[in-house]
């Protein structure tokens, strides 16, 4: 069964391109335009990984991760944060929020995919990408 990933960004173009990259690699993709919507999606359809932008209306990426950690059902979901602010997280923050990696915008979809695979512990050779292809 393919892994499910939730992508959260208020920029439609970014949602679109990240979804496409992940889908092409054989992952299942869910999307949300803000934190509120992301929490709703996570509660109804638990993803295996969260990819979120930092700067968004309603709540920022770190706030979203903290809110997620308050809910037992979804608190263990690992997260990747994309940020256009050169935002650096302290190790304690990463621990506290469950954020595993921070990618700076402009980011490379290739790198993002590699990070996703790393988190899932998937070797390049055995990637779902190959399976689909």
């Amino acid at each position: 069964m393919s892994k499910k990933i939730l992508v959260v960004d208020d920029e439609a173009h970014i949602l679109h391109v990240v979804s496409l990259k992940l889908r092409n690699a054989g992952f299942g993709v869910l999307t949300a335009a803000d934190g509120e919507e992301a929490l709703e999606v996570m509660n109804s359809d638990r993803p295996d990984l969260l990819i979120t932008d930092y700067h968004m209306p309603v709540m920022n990426g770190v706030e979203l991760c903290c809110r997620m950690r308050e809910n037992d059902a979804i608190k263990d979901i690992p997260a990747i944060m994309l940020t256009a602010r050169g935002y650096a997280l302290e190790p304690e923050d990463m621990q506290r929020t469950g954020i595993r990696a921070v990618l700076s915008k402009p980011f490379s979809p290739r790198e993002l995919l590699a990070t996703v695979r790393e988190i899932f512990g998937l070797a390049e050779a055995a990637s779902p990408d190959e399976a689909v292809a």
């Binding site: 173009h13 256009a84 915008k105 980011f107 979809p109």
Partner: peptide
């Protein structure tokens, strides 16, 4: 400075990502 940097990076992110997708033949 922080806003401008963010505002500049946002369209640049899209450009970079879509160009890379085209280069990688993902479209």
């Amino acid at each position: 400075v922080s806003n401008v940097s963010h505002e500049l990076r946002t369209p640049l992110s899209s450009i970079k990502a879509y160009v890379e997708m085209l280069v990688d033949g993902e479209a």
